[in-house]
Amino acid sequence: MIEITSNKIDREKVLGAVAHLEGGAICTFIGTVRSKTADKKVLRLEYECYEPMAIQEIQKIIDFAKVKWPVLAVAVSHRVGTLQLGDEAVVLAVSTPHRKESFEACQFMIDTLKQTVPIWKKEIFEGGEEWVSAHP
């Protein structure tokens, strides 16, 4: 399951999508909006996405993980639009037969998502705003 949504992420749906009878481990990653970046106080985040390409790039990451680990199922939901402090921006779940590969595949997928998937966030903080990572 891959989903880009402007609504609150349904965690139970993401977890339910990776339920698998051969699975002995489900590892999840939840990315949330934190209140500070460096010394700045964050007020909210605005996410945008090039959706058709983002879905394809997420699928590539899943396909790669399936080659590298015995992955049974993966589900990813990424939120777009305006997010408030504490909101969940991404929920990723993976099921595998054992926990070690579950942790490894989960970390690989979220790390790669942050590097390759065309999704952008702008931090709105007190006294300004900035697209994250845009400038050197």
Binding site: G31, Y47, C49, Y50, M53, A54, H78, A89, V90, I110, L113, K114, Q115, T116, V117, P118, I119, W120, K121, W131, V132, S133, A134
Partner: peptide, 10 residues
């Protein structure tokens, strides 16, 4: 065609 500045999802 799309321009992809540094991504920052997650």
């Amino acid at each position: 065609i799309a321009l992809i500045p540094p991504v920052s999802g997650g």
